[in-house]
Amino acid sequence: MSTRVHAVTVVGSINLDLIATADRLPTAGETIGGAALSQQPGGKGANQAAAAARLGGSARMVGAVGNDVNGQRMLDALAGAGVDTADVAVLPEPTGTALIVVDGDGENQIVVCPGANSHLTLDGVEFGPEETVLCQLEVVLEAARRHAGYFVLNAAPAMDLPAQLLERCDLVIVNESEYALIPALAEAKLVAVTYGGDGSAMFEHGRKVAEAPSVAVSVANTVGAGDAFCAALVLALRQGVDYAHALAVANAVGGDAVGNPSSQPDLAQLGYYVERTAVAEGAR
């Protein structure tokens, strides 16, 4: 178990991404040739932890991989990004795998084989009251129960959320479709919503209180962009950046991620994005 104090502790999935890049996405029953295959570290949880670490925030990963070559590869990738992996369990089940098809515009189709992720527990894991915990919809209820400090939920994929979970969340992060599919979010204390090319907005109990435009970029891969956005928004807010500026920072980080073919792209330090977006806001 890790005993360090971390800016962000991420509880979530760790996958090997198998990515086929094709001119377009196939329709049902269709076979498309001429695609290029790549393998890279992925999983929403791992992507968010790697982004947080690369942005300069001390990050811890709580997750599970298999006792196999892919599991070791995922651990090495997280450690290489600067993530503390002491609380990543190595289990007999195979490492999770995501099968991803990406078209020429960066849009994707994804099928996830969770493997070891489905057997993740929080046995032996402790959370300090000063930690910020960022979860996706995996072992979120147990994490919410165990952690008394700042708690963030990336509510993806969309599903009904228990009222007690929403009451526990200090921040919920979703995309536009997830916000529409989870009506209960209108009652949540603070929700950040992403709108792709239309930027992002912050809502308090269903009332929009801030927004920020998107950043114009050339799209290479959208798989890890939302995860980079989550990490950046959490770090910015926890450093006291106001809602609108924090959204702008997260949009800039997400934009850089979209322009990179990796699900866990290299990123500048958070301070760079804070300064860059401050200059941009002053110019508007």
Score class of each variant (00 low, 15 high):
residue 204 E to P: 01
residue 58 S to N: 08
residue 131 E to D: 15
residue 240 G to E: 12
residue 141 L to V: 07
residue 103 D to A: 10
residue 209 V to M: 11
residue 59 A to M: 05
residue 98 A to K: 02
residue 200 S to V: 04
residue 256 D to R: 06
residue 111 V to I: 15
residue 156 A to W: 12
residue 208 K to P: 12
residue 219 V to K: 07
residue 203 F to H: 10
residue 60 R to E: 04
residue 170 D to C: 12
residue 153 L to Q: 05
residue 175 N to V: 13
residue 239 Q to P: 04
residue 231 A to Q: 06
residue 102 V to M: 03
residue 20 A to E: 06
residue 14 I to C: 12
residue 219 V to R: 05
residue 156 A to I: 10
residue 38 S to I: 04
residue 31 T to I: 10
residue 22 A to Q: 04
residue 180 A to D: 02
residue 198 D to W: 04
residue 94 P to L: 02
residue 215 V to E: 05
residue 18 L to A: 13
residue 70 N to K: 05
residue 99 L to S: 14
residue 113 C to R: 01
residue 202 M to E: 00
residue 156 A to G: 14
residue 133 V to E: 03
residue 183 P to F: 04
residue 164 Q to P: 04
residue 61 M to K: 12
residue 30 E to Q: 15
residue 207 R to I: 13
residue 193 V to I: 06
residue 239 Q to W: 02
residue 98 A to C: 11
residue 239 Q to R: 15
residue 284 R to E: 12
residue 278 A to T: 08
residue 9 T to Q: 04
residue 145 R to D: 15
residue 217 V to H: 06
residue 185 L to Y: 00
residue 1 M to A: 14
residue 175 N to C: 12
residue 185 L to D: 10
residue 218 S to E: 13
residue 262 S to C: 08
residue 223 V to N: 11
residue 1 M to Q: 09
residue 58 S to W: 02
residue 114 P to H: 11
residue 154 N to T: 03
residue 272 Y to N: 02
residue 10 V to A: 11
residue 67 N to H: 12
residue 133 V to Q: 05
residue 48 Q to N: 06
residue 240 G to T: 10
residue 148 A to F: 08
residue 253 V to E: 10
residue 117 N to C: 10
residue 276 R to L: 06
residue 113 C to G: 12
residue 49 A to T: 02
residue 216 A to P: 10
residue 278 A to N: 00
residue 158 A to F: 07
